[in-house]
């Protein structure tokens, strides 16, 4: 079952490389959160039911509802419709994303003798997810897409930690999620300020006034 979920997850990464509409990026994040919810459900090894329910709910509420809500509101307020001038053509970006997915598997194959009692497919896909997030940040220009790339990296690290650290203490898991939520909230506020302060149409290119 986990394998099927992981394959759907990797398809969502390919979809990220294809789309240029900003709101479909966010929808993609919601799908990813739901898949992660189910993976956690099948993966957990925590001893008491309370902890499991708490971690599941927390994943769903923070990753699946609150973060997308903040991002959607931000998109609406700033009237961002699509990624302005994606600076790589689509066929190239899907090619690169497929290469990243393949690279994840190659790495798993490489490291295979060092990995014991870890789901190697999940390991590979989480590495690919982290790289995919970095890739989004590198090729896209809108600040909001960068935030989405950051969220994709966070999803990747979460998936990776699921493979290895089977039972995180509840308090620690809560701390991690709160950090991420506050980070996204703060990034949203800063984007709002940047949009009013700088030219609306420009993305990261307008942030170049500080240099030596």
């Amino acid at each position: 079952m986990i394998e099927v979920l992981l394959i759907i997850f990797s398809i969502s990464l390919l979809a990220l490389s294809l789309t240029t509409m900003v709101d479909s990026y966010v929808r993609n994040l919601i799908y990813q959160a739901i898949i992660i919810f189910f993976i956690t459900l099948f993966n957990h090894e925590a001893k008491n039911l309370g902890t499991v329910i708490f971690i599941l709910l927390e994943t769903l509420i923070i990753k699946g509802i609150l973060v997308p809500y903040i991002l959607f509101r931000n998109i609406k307020e700033n009237e961002i419709v699509r990624e302005v001038q994606p600076n790589t053509p689509q066929y190239l970006s899907i090619l690169l994303m497929s290469l990243i997915l393949i690279f994840g598997f190659v790495i798993t194959f490489w490291f295979n003798k060092h990995i014991n009692n870890v789901n190697s497919m999940q390991f590979g896909i989480s590495i690919s997810t982290i790289l995919a997030g970095l890739f989004l940040i590198l090729v896209r220009k809108q600040l909001i897409t960068h935030v989405i790339g950051y969220m994709v990296i966070e999803n990747g690290t979460f998936l990776l930690s699921l493979t290895v650290i089977k039972n995180l203490p509840l308090l620690v898991a809560l701390g991690i999620s709160l950090d991420i939520l506050m980070g996204i909230l703060l990034a949203g506020i800063l984007i709002n300020h940047i949009k009013t302060e700088f030219n609306k149409e420009e993305g990261i290119d307008s942030l170049t006034s500080l240099k030596d």
């Binding site: 950051y150 690290t157 930690s161 493979t163 703060l186 990034a187 800063l190 940047i194 006034s209 500080l210």
Partner: peptide, 27 residues
């Protein structure tokens, strides 16, 4: 100011990504 806005954004973003990578290291 404009400059402090830019600095805050860069700081928040670069450090958050760096720290996300350090989480991979912890795993």
């Amino acid at each position: 100011t404009r400059h402090s806005l830019e600095a805050a954004w860069k700081y928040l973003f670069i450090c958050s990504i760096g720290i996300a990578l350090s989480f991979v290291g912890i795993v």
